[in-house]
């Protein structure tokens, strides 16, 4: 092992400045350094937390994505309190009823905001430009959230939850998964609701955000072809047929007036 070398000169071969690799010669081959370099290449800090965004990011549709995350934070916080205190508290005490309502209404808002975000991204065809994974992780969040909400309704510990569970049991039996996902088993449903499904939702929301940061949000559709006219691309005025779609995308990515 070589002694630590602190120097202002260039780091040894293969080391990235600022990653710590320049400190010890030979460490750049260790798995920690390789993982660190891969992470820096995949998600550099300026992509993770950019100062500017293209002008087409200034849209209410993205506000609804952020509102969805805000509602999720309230859901998790109120859910932690409900888990801590238990059903005898959330059914009886006034503070418990308040937190029970906060949990319910934050879920209502979560789906409200998420579906508006989903509609907007669907009509933008947000999977374009190597963004399929971003779209798919969003879809997984939506589907798993439905399961999380469903198990929440049958974890209420009241007549309503018993009614929902017995009705759902027939439906789940009819598709052959009633033995694995037994909605009449309160213990199983409660654990799915407070551990498994929230963990999946949080993991996929995090992955979704990282993919949005890595790939960027989808650019607008190119202008429709109008053979008799010319179109302004931001860089130059060119006939519609002069630019292939890939170059149109490149031009659109060079945002002429980025906004904060």
């Amino acid at each position: 092992m070589t002694d630590t070398v602190h120097s202002d000169s260039a780091p040894p071969n293969g080391a990235l400045p600022g990653t710590g690799d320049e400190n010890v010669t030979g460490d750049e081959k260790m798995w920690t350094a390789r993982v660190r370099r891969a992470a820096m290449r995949t998600l550099p800090p300026d992509k993770l937390l950019p100062d500017r965004q293209p002008s087409y990011v200034a849209s209410w549709i993205y506000v609804f994505g952020v509102l969805t995350i805000a509602a999720l934070v309230v859901i998790i916080a109120s859910g932690v309190v409900l888990t801590w205190k238990g059903p005898s508290w959330w059914h009886v005490s006034k503070v418990g009823l308040f937190f029970n309502s906060i949990h319910l209404w934050s879920v209502e808002l979560f789906f409200f905001f998420m579906v508006i975000h989903l509609w907007g991204k669907f009509f933008m065809a947000a999977w374009r430009g190597r963004r399929r994974a971003t779209w798919v992780t969003g879809v997984v969040c939506f589907v798993v959230s439905i399961g999380a909400a469903f198990t929440g309704y049958i974890s209420q510990q009241n007549f309503d939850s018993q009614w929902i569970a017995t009705q759902a049991k027939d439906g789940l039996n009819s598709v052959g998964i009633g033995a694995f996902f037994n909605v009449l088993n309160f213990g199983q449903m409660l654990l799915w609701h407070v551990l498994l499904l929230p963990a999946v939702v949080i993991a996929f929301v995090g992955l979704h955000i990282l993919l949005v940061r890595r790939r960027g949000v989808v650019h607008p559709f190119p202008a429709r072809a109008r053979p008799a006219r010319h179109r302004i691309t931001g860089a130059a005025t060119v006939p519609d047929e002069a630019l292939p779609s890939s170059e149109i995308e490149t031009v659109l990515h060079k945002d002429p007036e980025p906004v904060r």
Partner: peptide
């Protein structure tokens, strides 16, 4: 309309 903030 979405208020886009300060332009560069």
């Amino acid at each position: 309309p979405f208020r886009s903030g300060r332009r560069s």
